[in-house]
Design a protein around this nucleic acid. Sequence first.
DNA 1: GTGAAAGCGCTAACAA
DNA 2: TTGTTAGCGCTTTCAC
Lengths: 330, 330
Amino acid sequence: MAVTIRDIANELKISHTTVSRVLRGKGENFISDATRNKVMQLAQAMGYQPNRIARALVTGHTNLIALIGAHLYTPYSAQVAFQLAQELKRNHYELIVRTMEEDSDERHLLAAPQFPVDGMIAFDYPLGAIEFSDNTGSPSPAIVGMGAYFLEQTDTVEIDLFSVTLEAVQHLVEIGCRRIAYLVSQKCNQIGDDRHDAYQRVIEESGLQPHYIVTYGESRNAYYQTVINACQHADRPDGIFCHNDDMAIGAYRALCDLGLKVPTDVALVGCDGIEDTEYLERPITTIMQPIKEMCALAWKFLKQRIQEPDYPPQRVVLQPKLVIRASSQR
Amino acid sequence: MAVTIRDIANELKISHTTVSRVLRGKGENFISDATRNKVMQLAQAMGYQPNRIARALVTGHTNLIALIGAHLYTPYSAQVAFQLAQELKRNHYELIVRTMEEDSDERHLLAAPQFPVDGMIAFDYPLGAIEFSDNTGSPSPAIVGMGAYFLEQTDTVEIDLFSVTLEAVQHLVEIGCRRIAYLVSQKCNQIGDDRHDAYQRVIEESGLQPHYIVTYGESRNAYYQTVINACQHADRPDGIFCHNDDMAIGAYRALCDLGLKVPTDVALVGCDGIEDTEYLERPITTIMQPIKEMCALAWKFLKQRIQEPDYPPQRVVLQPKLVIRASSQR
DNA sequence: GTGAAAGCGCTAACAA
DNA sequence: TTGTTAGCGCTTTCAC
């Protein structure tokens, strides 16, 4: 059996409360040095490890944070998850990764039992707050929204993709593209989506025709196929703004296979800033997300919310940057 | 406040023990249907959620599993982590991602407090078992090693990279490479490492000269730089076996920038089978890890170990596959 | 079939 | 400065 504070207390003929106080650094100024030292030493010697479960039961917090999202397996998400885990670790918190599958009942909390966490970060996951707030009558848990999709009611670290997409599509216009397509998954292709709206705006203002290449699957291979189909006709686009980098990478490969040259025949712009876009023969122009900053802020908000549940909701808007690379330089 | 079994019991004028039994499905055959139904209904109506912490305190298990490793942020690791999380979810377990940094004191458990888990999976992390077993006198926790690096004392899902590397390097010989280099990080470049040993063996048996390109950083950019330096001389290699795909991708880009053609000037083979190798103009030949199988088996072993701590250690060896692509086809 | 009581290891209020 | 007591919400004997 693991050693408990009572074991230490018995050994020392003192109360376990005192041991608890010493070990937790409480009572800085009213525990005698003699006692403190005795306890510290023995705890060390006996290899005492506090039982976090017992502590959690009484304090009500676990020092666990959940990252929730729909596509936590993409390179972009993986980077975010890792960044967050690092950030948390410094504060003695740990991260549980919770992928919510979209078309299943798991949306409903009862389906898959979940370990209680002190807070959650909903990444690019607009439904988070809804699900988790009205679930029971209990006070809504600490939750912060983060990314390009989020909800209004909570703390949020919002990434504004509108302005930068304006810039990105404008950039395609400026390098001479006249048939600029928008490669996008079905579910993101709608009014209200920053990228969609910004694309449409620039196209209209430039007097061009919008051209949506809609994908249904969610894999690079699906994107690849979609682009193969969309670009084998004579009236193919001469520039593609891709909703994300995975699509851009699928598109890149498709264009190669079709014998089309990037950027000469077709210019390419992606979004997210994952490393992969940089390691191609023709690196892909992309929108670089401020991952580090986003994670740091999300954690800052969440930490505060955990400490002060009634603090007024905070919000910050981050601006990603367009990084121009060979795929759009003519 | 959240609703407890006592709330339900009081409401129903029965004991909380009975409620507990019903809710947990114990006492299948000695709880009256009347009681059972009443309880079920009220629990539902009151939105009862069991307190997992309280349960964990008494049962001693959390249904939490930790994934531990040194480089959990690479695309390969991310894929593994995701796969594992999926696997666990089906069994009502959740995953905590624990990156161990190499050159810090975090190796020692006391440094960063960790939430108790029912088991751990050490991925490509040979030190796992050492650290976690002799830590206290307590019985070693359930742990399984997984990947190409692991320890002898525990359950392990081992990936044998030796045979397939033999095949990979042999393949380079067969397509006509005569100066085959091995791109590897400093810490993996040693006897005992499958890839290192297999490379050396083939080179020797083919009467060629070994040529180690050693990198010190751990990023694609570091690999890129290393290859730039290593390949700008006239006696550059005409084939490179890369220790992993990230290195292969860094190398690929370096070769492009040096104006060298893949595979004509330099053939390339990577290892791990991450998606990125497939989406280049010249897809990279690689060793495809059996991620899914590996994760499924690791979880199978771990689950068994959790249930039967004294079961004799299990071990299985998995064979990855060489996937030949354009980067090594002449 | 059901309930009473004990206790998991800890923290926190209140005494002394 | 230290100890006593209660209790977090649950599971688990054991008794009825």
